[in-house]
Structure formats: C-alpha cells, structure tokens
Nucleic acid binder design. Sequence first.
DNA 1: TTGAAAGCGTTACCAC
DNA 2: GTGGTAACGCTTTCAA
Lengths: 347, 347
Amino acid sequence: MVTIADVADHAGVSASTVSYVLSGKRSISEETAERVRASIAELGYRPNARAAALASRRAYAIALVAPLRPDNNVPVIMQFVAAAAMAARARNHDVLLVTQEEGVAGLERVSSSSLVDAVIVMDVEIADRRIPMLTMLEIPAVMIGHPGRSQGISTIDLDMAAAAELAVQHLADLGHRSIAMLGSPSAVYDRKSSYAFRFREGFERARGEFAVEGHWYPVEPSYQSTREVLQAHLAQHPQTTGLIVHNESILGEVLAALADEGLRVPEDMSLVALCPSDLAVTQRVALTSIAVPTDDIGAAAVDMVLGLVDGSAHAESRLLAPELTIRSSTAGPRSAAPPLEEETGTP
Amino acid sequence: MVTIADVADHAGVSASTVSYVLSGKRSISEETAERVRASIAELGYRPNARAAALASRRAYAIALVAPLRPDNNVPVIMQFVAAAAMAARARNHDVLLVTQEEGVAGLERVSSSSLVDAVIVMDVEIADRRIPMLTMLEIPAVMIGHPGRSQGISTIDLDMAAAAELAVQHLADLGHRSIAMLGSPSAVYDRKSSYAFRFREGFERARGEFAVEGHWYPVEPSYQSTREVLQAHLAQHPQTTGLIVHNESILGEVLAALADEGLRVPEDMSLVALCPSDLAVTQRVALTSIAVPTDDIGAAAVDMVLGLVDGSAHAESRLLAPELTIRSSTAGPRSAAPPLEEETGTP
DNA sequence: TTGAAAGCGTTACCAC
DNA sequence: GTGGTAACGCTTTCAA
C-alpha cells in the first residue's frame, strides 16, 4: 500500500504538503502542487479513508436505516435508498446500510462507534421508539416520515394528510359521493407507520370536509386480499364510485379485481393512487395519481442531514405539498351530477 | 467521547488490557476482566471503529454493489440486499452500499481507500467490465451471477440454465408442445445480464432437448407491453399452451392479460414462473414456480467472501440447483396426449 | 497475567 | 509557502 509518506518522499516534500495539495486547505505553489500530483499519479496513491476519518473526526459516510421487510412497499423503499445513496455520493459521502431489524441498537452502534457522521432513518412510526435515541446521539439525524413528536429531530416527507385530502377532493369535485380507500397491509397500521397513519387521518378528515361517504381498509399484498376487500365493500356499499389506493404493491391487483367484478375504470369506478409516477403509468389504465417524490425526498434528506453536519442548517420539519396528476383512471360517475364548481371552502 | 484510555484509567489497568478484555485475544484474570467490564459499563465506552480499523487493518465492513435502476427487478434485488446485509451483520460486518452507477470507479474507490474488506457485486453481465478490476483489487470479491469468464473471482447464483430446462421439462412432461417464454425487459438482454442471458440460453437448449416449439420475448414492466407481446404471439401461434415467465414485475400483468384474452389458467394456459416464492403465492392463481432463493444466495455470498477474507476458503463458482414447486398454474393441455413417460434422454 | 510502547496513515496545528 | 510533529483511538508485539 502506498502511503502519503511515500508520495512525500517521492515528490521531495513533506507529508503535510501532500495532504494540503489534496485537500486544498492551504495555498501551495503551483510548482510543488504539480510535482506532488505527478508523484501521486506515478505511485498510484490512494488516501486511506480510515486514517483520514480518524484524524479528521469525519467519516464522510452516513447511515441509512432502511426497512427491508417484505410487508413494506419495496419498490418505494428502494427508490428512497437509491436517491439517498446517489445524493450522498454526489456530496462525497458513502452510505452505510443499516437494516431496520437492528433497531435502536443499530443506531447506537453506528453512531457511537464513529462509523458515520449522520443518520437518515426511514419509515418512522408515529411514536417511534428510536426518536429518544436519536436525540441522544452525538451525530445529526433526519427522519423520512412525520412522527407525532419529532423532538427536535429533522423530518421530511410528503404531506400525507394533504395528499389524502387532495385525492378525496378530486373525486368529490368530479361528483363522487361514496369513496373507499384501499390502504397498506394491516401490520403497517398496527405499528403506526407514519406515512400510512397520516394518509388515513387525512382521508378521515377529508370525508367530513367534502361531505362524502368514506370507508377505508387495510389490504395485504395479494390478489386474493385485494379482491376480498373490494367484494366485501361493494356488497355493502354498491353506491361507491371512487377508489383511493395507497398501497403500491396492489395497484395491478386492484385493476384486475375491478375487471373481474365487471367494473370498468373510469366509467364505473374512478381510481386515484398514491404512488411513484412510474408505477402509475405502467398499469393497464394510466392512473390519476398523487406522486410520491422519492427522489426529491431522498436527496433532500441527505442535504438536510449534511447541512446539520457542517452547521450550515438547523433542524426543521419539511412537508412537501402533494401534486395530483390527472390521467385516465378518473372521471365523473355515470349518473354524475355536473362536477361541483371550484368550491374550496367548507360548507 | 470515552476512549480506551479513559476506561483503562478508571479500571486501573493498561489500555492493552482493556483491548484484550474486549477482543478475548488473550487470557485475562476473571477479576480484572470484571473490573474492566464494570468500567466500560459505567463510562459507557464504545470502541471507535475507525481507529480499530486503522490499527487492525480490518474494516469489518463489506461493500455491496447493487443495481438500483428501475429496469431491474426491484423486489428481488432488495431481497438480495436484505439477505446479504443481515448475513453480514450476523458476522459482525457492516455493509457499505455502492450504487451500480458508480461502476468501476466505485469499486476502485471503496477498495483502495481501505473502507471495506471485501466486495459483493450483484447483477453481473456476461462480459462484465468490472471483472478485470475485481481481479486487480487487493481485497476479495464475490459476484452474484455467472459471467462468461469469472477469471478467478468467486461467483454464486441459481443455475439459471438448469432452471429454464426444468421449467420446459415440466411443461413438456405435462404434454405441452408449444411454449412461450416471457422474459426481462429488452435492456436487460442488451446488456447481457447474466441471469437473463443464462435463462434464455437454457430455454433455447431445452426446446431442442424436449422437442417442443418455443419462442421467447423481452417484456417491459407494464400491462401494455405484456398484453401486446402475448397477443402478438398467440395470433401467430394459437397452439401455444405453456408459458414461462422470467420477469417478476409482470407476473400479475400476465395473469390479467390472459384473463382479458379469455384464457383460463391452467385450463387453457399453463404457467411456470421463475421468482421468489412469496411472489408466486400472492398472485390470483398460485403459481407453479422455480424459486429464486434470494436469502440463500445473499447469505452464501457473504459467507464466501468472508471466507476469502480470513483465508479459510478459496475462490469458487457455485451454482445452486433449481427446485420446482408445483402449484395451481400448471396442468396438462386440454387436448392432452397422456403425459410422456419419464424419458430423460435426447431422442 | 499484565504493561509499555510502537505503530496504523492521516490531518492540522505550530513553527519557520 | 512549506516542514515538523503531535494528535486521532485503537491493536499488537515485545518485555516482564
């Protein structure tokens, strides 16, 4: 292994000079700098990151705590991970992957062993047990999600409550008066995952606000569960003409189940999905959807946490405003009253 | 930050003694050990992993190079990542996530900067440009996949060619004489991704071996692409009664498209999938499938690479034998000739 | 069974 | 503008 001392010898300078040429933290005469660079190239010198981390007290790495369990929405999680990883690399940081299963212990471990400079925690719960731990950590943290009490920890997420309201509003504006929401698997609600919880809350609030009938159901990621839920609901509420789906893994199943019930989209049933845009456009019917901006959120999480690391930013909670894109899965109900005019206030 | 020196002072021993209590690399009297452990607990000491790595020349971390691009089969990738991460943690190693986009440069970087002790590379191509780099690395590597020439680098994967043959054999044994294979998106074949390439090779070989008519098609991950491919094939080859699907993201779409064509599974069309088992059982019809044992492969990759690190193992190529599980998506064709007897030889 | 001390390869402070 | 040299916090050899 070539060390900085080897380079220094070869270039006829001191180790510190080599270090400064590399870091640019002080001015070096162009002549020496050139000589040093030549030696680095000739010897094939690569700085040892561990030594640099030790000396500089900076690991140039962040931990990403990601839920890899199957009940989660895997593609979405993956998009977050990819976005965060690329954003981190763009800012010269590496990403240490910590599985959710490690829980509080994992956070404690990577932080207190100085392996990383900061942590990003995904899939936070409303009363996440990791939050107290995060506040005690000696390194900054950002949560992707929106817990009940963030206790001074930065958070970023799509405004799920607003997203649900927007979905309901869109359907209500089209004239739908009975709406069903197909949600995440029940385990997700049981553990009070913030994204699911907030969306459901928004849905419940919105049905009052927009004076529509609304029911919600957890759905497991299988065709069978999807169809059962749908059939059971329609048996009781045949008047339902609007569907909101907040579960990326069953989008295709919902469309298939509707077809099997003899219901056309959007003629018999309108459907709004909350999902990354690419999933919305690859279904058999292009779905009217509210985008989950995974790339923006992942990149912003990295920006926020590195801002905290270098002291250029303070803790904050960011909620991204939802945006609805109308595609081919929503229309007025067949016996539609003409769509309401742009009434945005409450009755 | 509490250091080993603080603990040593507090316990009235030397730093080396503390180190040895922790590592167990030499015997310590139970009395001192107990005193040291008490001090560690009292002071809340956590060893600094960077310093340990520097001194021991061992990072206790592995790099995982994962393709996070959307055209890949995201859930499957994620399962590999999860399995590898958990296996690594079980063996006290951390996982550094390197995106495929970093390519050769990423490999070079993590290895030569001594950030990790080993690398695992996923989604290798038949003539992967990273292989020469891997051979030059000063740290061990394992590839998940099976390139054309592994050049001394360890590899592990499901035996994709055998899997394809097994799928064809199963259908042929049931009496099907015309089979179509729906594969990965064309970009995957274009870049000669080894898993897709090998499976297709096996398919092509098997149709000769089992004397069946067989066609294959790349399929993009959308309902539309799936249905188009299916319709186009059936228009030309209405006699087809067997389908092999090697593309996890379109399993649901295939079943939906078949239904839309008025074809029942398995009465009109038998279907064998190559996918993780959990995906096979959550479809509207439980799919006869050959499992992609993501957990086994991920864990084995970690074992292999750590074996190389500690010198307890040598480079090797491992191919896992495929296993077929019969579920509800395969049966004999309606106008079935009685299934062929166990003829395994070539004509 | 234990301690002292020499690294590990950088960074960054203190001189010049 | 450049060099010397303490750290950084740990592991491991050498001595006792």
